[in-house]
Write a protein that binds this DNA or RNA. Structure first.
Length: 414
DNA sequence: CCATAATGTACGTATTGGTT
DNA sequence: AACCAATACGTACATTATGG
C-alpha cells in the first residue's frame, strides 16, 4: 500500500467511496488507466491528431481492473474518514502542537507542512541537512528529524555535534556557524583540470509530455524543444551575447531534426561539453541518437565529451577516487556555502559563487520555461515575440551560469 | 588450536537530489 | 510527475585478531 503504485489504488478507492456514498448506483467496474512507458508512437496522424494504434510495443494505455481491490479498501477508507474528522475537530483553529509531526519526506509531501511547521526557519532548518531523512545518531540510537524537533532542535546549528554521524553534515553546520564557505581546494583544482578547451556550455529545455507527440517518442518523453550553447575558447573569457548560440522551436510542430542539425554543426569533436547534472542531457542525447540514426555517431560523440560541473561543486565518489583521493575524501562535498541551504542545484550555487541570481527573471526555472513553450499557440503576435525572447534569455542564463560557477570555483582555489 | 570478537568487504534496496 | 545516477546503510558473509 505504501509502494508508489499503491497510492493510485488508494486514491481510486477514495473516489469509489464518494461515488458510492453519493449515488445509488448499479454495479460499476473500476479501472486504473496506465500509460504504457514502452509504447513508441509511429508518427501517424489522423485529422491532425496523433493516431495511437497498437503496435509491437503494445497499447498506449493499459487498463487494470481494480474493482475487487477497491472493494476491499472500502472499510479502510471509512476508518480513515472517521480519523480525519476527528483530527479536524481537534486541531482546527488550534495551534498544531510541536510533538505531533508527520513526515516531511520528499516524495509524498503534505500540503499543510508550511502551516504545521511554521516554527521552523525557512533557511537552514534541520530538514536542510543533507540526507536528513536518514536521520541522526547518538550513542548508537537513531533519531529522525521529528525526534529532534521534539527535543527543541529546529535549526541546523541547534543540533549538537554528538548527533551528527555524517561528515558532510558536520561540514554544513560548521560553515553556517562560522558563516564561511567550506572549500576543498585540492579536489576543486583536480576537478577543474579535467576540463579542456573549448568548453561547450550546454543545456536542453524539454517538454515532458504525457502523450507522445512525435515519431519515436513514448509516453512522458522529455521532448527537446530548445538548447542553449555558450562556447568558451579560453580561460576566464566569455561574452554573454557574442559567444551564445542556440535553437528554439518556433511553434509546437516537430522541429527536432533542425534542432539536432544545428547542435551537431556547432559542437566539434574537441574540448569539453559542460552540463549541470549530466544524467539529463546524456539521456536526451541518447534518445535523439536513436530517433535520428544519421546523426547517431555525432550525437554519441557529443555525449562522450560531457563533463558534469556538479561533480566539481558537490563531488562524485568514483571520479575523485580515480583522481587519487582517499575513500574518505572522495564522497565529501568540495564546496559548501550557508546560502546553499542544503542544495547543490545551479540556482542555489550561482548566487554563492557569483553576483548573478535567477531571482526577478520572468522565466526563472525549467518548469516555467516548458509552460511558456506549451502556450505558444495561445499568445498574440506581440506576446509571442516577447515570450520567445524571454525563453531564449532564460536558457542562455542557464549556460552562462555554468561559466560563472566555473569562474567562481577558479577564484576559490587561487 | 579453536571459539569468539572485531574488522573488512560485497551486495541489495531504498532514498536522494539533480533535471525538465 | 517521471527519470536517472549516485549514495547511504543495513545485512550477510569473509577475513583477521585475540585470548584461553
Amino acid at each position: 500500500r505504501l509502494s508508489k503504485p499503491g497510492h493510485y489504488i488508494y486514491d481510486l478507492a477514495v473516489q469509489r467511496y464518494f461515488i458510492e456514498k453519493t449515488h445509488q448506483s448499479k454495479k460499476i467496474n473500476y479501472y486504473l488507466a496506465v500509460l504504457n512507458p514502452d509504447y513508441i508512437f509511429d508518427g501517424a496522424y489522423k485529422n491532425g491528431m496523433p493516431n495511437y494504434t497498437p503496435n509491437q510495443t503494445g497499447n498506449l494505455i493499459n487498463l487494470i481492473d481494480i474493482t475487487s481491490l477497491t472493494e476491499e479498501y472500502q472499510p479502510k477508507v471509512d476508518e480513515d474518514r472517521i480519523l480525519l474528522e476527528k483530527y479536524l475537530d481537534k486541531y482546527l483553529n488550534h495551534e498544531v502542537p510541536k510533538d505531533v509531526c508527520c513526515s516531511n519526506a520528499r516524495e509524498i509531501k503534505c500540503p499543510c507542512l508550511d502551516v504545521c511547521f511554521d516554527y521552523l526557519p525557512k533557511q537552514n532548518s534541520i530538514y536542510n541537512y543533507l540526507d536528513s531523512n536518514r536521520g541522526f545518531k547518538k550513542e548508537g540510537i537513531n533519531y529522525t528529524c521529528e525526534d529532534l524537533i521534539k527535543k527543541g532542535y529546529y535549526k541546523i546549528i541547534d543540533v549538537p555535534d554528538e548527533y551528527l554521524n555524517r561528515e558532510k553534515n558536520r561540514i554544513q553546520k560548521h560553515s553556517i556557524q562560522t558563516n564561511t564557505p567550506y572549500i576543498n581546494k585540492a579536489k576543486i583544482k583536480a576537478g577543474l583540470a579535467q576540463i579542456k578547451y573549448p568548453i561547450y556550455h550546454l543545456d536542453f529545455e524539454t517538454f515532458p509530455c504525457p502523450l507522445p507527440r512525435f515519431k519515436g517518442e513514448h509516453p512522458y518523453t522529455q521532448s527537446v524543444f530548445q538548447f542553449s550553447l555558450h562556447i568558451q575558447k579560453e580561460e576566464g573569457k566569455l561574452d554573454k551575447q557574442k559567444d551564445h548560440y542556440g535553437y528554439l522551436a518556433k511553434d509546437l510542430n516537430d522541429h527536432r531534426l533542425e534542432l539536432v542539425k544545428t547542435l551537431c554543426n556547432l559542437i566539434k569533436n574537441d574540448g569539453t561539453v559542460l552540463v549541470y547534472n549530466d544524467a539529463f542531457e546524456k539521456t536526451r542525447l541518447k534518445e535523439l541518437s536513436e530517433i535520428f540514426p544519421e546523426y547517431k555517431e555525432k550525437l554519441l560523440n557529443i555525449r562522450n565529451n560531457i563533463f558534469d560541473l556538479l561533480n566539481i561543486v558537490k563531488s562524485n565518489t568514483k571520479l575523485y577516487e580515480k583522481l587519487g583521493f582517499t575513500k574518505e575524501q572522495a564522497p565529501l562535498p568540495n564546496y559548501y556555502n550557508p546560502k546553499m541551504n542544503g542544495s547543490f542545484s545551479i540556482k542555489k550555487v550561482l548566487p554563492s559563487l557569483s553576483n548573478l541570481t535567477y531571482e526577478g527573471m520572468d522565466i526563472g526555472n525549467g518548469v516555467e520555461a516548458l509552460i511558456t513553450y506549451a502556450n505558444f499557440n495561445n499568445y498574440s503576435k506581440e506576446e509571442y515575440n516577447y515570450k520567445y525572447n524571454k525563453l531564449v534569455e532564460y536558457c542562455s542564463q542557464d549556460t552562462y551560469a555554468m561559466f560563472e560557477v566555473l569562474e567562481g570555483l577558479r577564484k576559490c582555489v587561487k
